[in-house]
Computed example of a mutant assay.
Amino acid sequence: MGTYGQDWSSYQSAAPDTSGLSFAFVKVTQGLTYTNPVWTDQRDHARAAGLVVGYYHYPEMGNAMAAEADRFLSLAQPQNGELVCLDWEGYDAENESVPKADQLSYKEAWLRYVKGKLPHNAVGLYCNADYWNNVDTTGYFQDFLWIATAGLPAGQPGVNADWLFHQYSDDGTDQDFCHLGSTAELRSWATAFAPPAGPAWPGEYLRLQTPMLHDGNVRTWQQQMHDRGWPLGVDGWYGQQSQTVCRQFQQEKGLTVDGIVGPATWAASWNDPVT
């Protein structure tokens, strides 16, 4: 019992096959200068397929932790229910000269710093069994642990730890397993970190129409968008200005761009990060 996913970087296509998958982790950044050139396409592809989406950063641990984390966060901007992860490994040229004690300090600091910036998202740690057993000394992984042990069966990472994800194959496309039993269960776990929801969707589609829609539901939504910083008057009339702001907001949040405040747009108006 469990669910399956993959982790994607520029080695994969902009739209990998999502058949049978429940989740996908997308590499966004490395160090202070590298950005995965297809990460936004991969993110949008995973969202469109209904996957639980995660984002990860590969560090170059000789750099200032906060500078790397801030750059990653400025790009990733996860929505509620999306995951964030540090890809903690140091076998490459950028990290091999960094003392293991400093690598450990980087890991501890990054997880705490990013969690402070994203208190309503699950923040976790990816590492292989060697790093977990021989470089880590604290057992600290914040909200979830993702262990890599290629060659062991899915769901048997071979470590004594409370893991959530297991990368069990890295043959071209990295294959991952989650011990939660369904996509819905994983999504429920991920969204549990979100802040309390705003008011429930009122059951009315707010749209531009004739005669023009005018009521308290429109006013409530306009007030929320105004409070988020959008240039929108609060008068209860769903006119051209409301439709324009709605469409721009939907575009920004990766929603269907139709200018209509339905359930998804209503929820995002309260729950998605302010950008």
Rank of each mutant, 00 (worst) to 15 (best):
G2N: 01
G2V: 05
Q6M: 14
Q6S: 10
S10T: 11
P16W: 07
K27P: 06
T29G: 12
Q30M: 15
G31S: 12
N36R: 09
D41W: 14
D41V: 12
H45Q: 07
R47F: 01
G50I: 15
V53Q: 00
G54S: 01
H57G: 02
H57P: 02
Y58Q: 12
M61R: 10
A64Q: 10
M65F: 10
A69E: 02
F72M: 06
S74H: 06
N80I: 14
N80M: 13
E82N: 01
L83E: 00
C85I: 13
C85M: 15
G90Q: 04
D92R: 01
E94R: 10
N95A: 02
V98E: 03
K100F: 00
L104D: 06
L111S: 07
L111E: 06
A122W: 00
V123M: 06
V123T: 09
V123E: 03
L125Y: 03
N128W: 00
Y131N: 11
V135Y: 09
T137C: 06
D143Q: 08
L145R: 11
T149M: 11
A150M: 06
G151Q: 06
A154F: 01
G155C: 04
W163C: 13
L164E: 06
Y168P: 11
C178V: 13
G181L: 11
S182G: 06
A194P: 01
A200L: 08
D215G: 11
N217L: 02
W221V: 09
Q222F: 02
Q222Y: 03
Q224W: 05
Q224A: 12
Q224F: 03
W230S: 03
V234C: 09
S242C: 07
R247M: 15
G254W: 08
V257E: 01
G259Y: 08
V261P: 01
A264N: 14
S269T: 15
D272H: 14
T275R: 15
T275Y: 14
